[in-house]
Simulated scan of single mutants.
Amino acid sequence: MVVGDFPLNGKTAVVTGGGSGINLSFVRLALQAGAKVLVADLKLLPEAEQVIADSAGNAYFMTCDVSNWRDLEAIPNTVTQAFGKDTIADVWIAGAGIFEPKWSSFLYDTETDHYKALQINTEHPIKLTRIAMRSCVGVNKPCVVLITASVAGLTGSYGAPLYCASKHAVVGFTKSMAQADEDENCKIVCICPGIVKTPLWTGNDAKHVASQFSFDDRMAVTADEVADAMMEMVQSSRWPGGSMMEINKANGRSKVDSVRSEEAVSKAGAETAEAKQWLENFHRPIREVWQKERGVANGVK
């Protein structure tokens, strides 16, 4: 049981961070493909307001602070309120993110209790995935979760160590969740863009970052290019659960290799009885949890 091809026509999507940048471009493409879209963000750029106004009721905005779990937990009910009784989102895009602003960074260290950047970039996509799976497993419905990671999740950078750490975390999470496609009909993937021409690099609040990293349009892909790649990952069976795509100006789109401990054990044991037993023991408690949640309408605990 895998999700396989998953055309967006007739589907409902949730897009965090859909008020601007890459995720706004994805919202446009999803609407053009025939989907309904809930945009969850702190605010909308004027362009996003216009997209929603022109959507004939197929797009809806909810104010959402993705660092606040109560806001994230409210998403399933908001989908139902926006698009009708019993509507459960099919596609969940964890797109909201920040780079490494001075107010939440390793270097400037201004925060007193936690790193907000980690809440936004790491906790939010992981929590959204849990909410998505609970919602869809609860009604025996397939789903796709796409996390916006970064090439920074594949390499390191002394200039942005907290950002790199946050993206490494969701890359590791995506690899770990590959089995959910086969077991639970829930496909979790991530995209790893290089530098993208978005407000994250070009906005007024990002001037110091653009200067530090010598941002130049010529080294950047566009938000539309990344959104189109996201559409491919969501809809095509060529990108099964656990897949990661890198997209950058120099090399275009490419698949990132992923190795999981389960695969390593299977290869080492050459599918021996011992290896099969190890995998069965390893997966059993996870499968038991999903089995208990299966059939719980709208993911309500």
Rank of each mutant, 00 (worst) to 15 (best):
T87V: 10
K167V: 05
C164W: 06
D65N: 13
A56S: 15
L107W: 15
V145H: 04
P161W: 08
E100N: 01
K116D: 14
D113Q: 11
A74H: 03
T148S: 12
L162D: 05
T63S: 15
M62I: 07
F83R: 00
V145M: 08
Y163A: 04
G138R: 02
C143D: 02
M133T: 05
C136G: 11
F106V: 12
K102T: 15
K127R: 13
R130W: 13
S67F: 02
D113A: 14
T148Y: 07
H124L: 12
L154G: 04
D65M: 09
P76T: 09
K102H: 13
G153M: 02
Q50P: 04
Q50W: 09
I147L: 08
E111C: 06
S166R: 05
D54A: 09
T78Q: 14
A82E: 12
L118V: 12
W103D: 12
A59C: 08
A94T: 00
A74E: 05
A94N: 00
I75F: 01
L146H: 01
N68D: 11
A59Q: 01
V151F: 10
E49Y: 07
D54E: 11
L118F: 10
F99W: 10
S135M: 09
P76M: 00
V139S: 11
S67L: 00
T80N: 12
D54N: 10
T110G: 11
S135V: 09
T63A: 15
V139Q: 11
T155Y: 15
F61K: 03
D65A: 08
R134G: 13
V137T: 12
A96S: 05
Y163P: 08
E73S: 14
A160L: 14
T122V: 04
K141T: 07
K141H: 11
E73H: 15
V137H: 09
N121L: 06
F99S: 06
N58W: 08
G84E: 01
K85Y: 10
I126S: 04
R70L: 12
E123Y: 15
I88D: 14
E123A: 15
L154K: 01
S166K: 05
V137A: 08
E73W: 14
V91S: 03
Q50F: 11
G95I: 00
Y158M: 15
N140A: 13
H114C: 13
A74L: 05
Q81F: 15
I126F: 09
A89M: 06
D65F: 06
G97M: 01
N140Y: 14
D65T: 09
I93A: 08
Y60T: 09
M62Q: 12
T122P: 01
I126Y: 07
F83P: 00
T122F: 08
S166D: 07
D86P: 02
E49Q: 13
V51I: 08
S150N: 04
D54P: 09
Q81W: 11
D54T: 08
T63I: 13
M133A: 10
V91T: 02
N121Y: 03
K116C: 12
C164Y: 00
I147T: 03
A53G: 07
A165S: 09
T110P: 11
G95C: 04
G156S: 11
H124K: 14
I131M: 03
A56I: 09
L146T: 06
F99D: 07
V144A: 00
K102Y: 14
Q50R: 13
I52P: 03
Q81I: 11
T78C: 13
A94G: 03
E111W: 05
G153N: 02
C136E: 08
L154S: 03
A94Q: 00
Y60P: 12
V137S: 13
F61H: 07
Y158P: 15
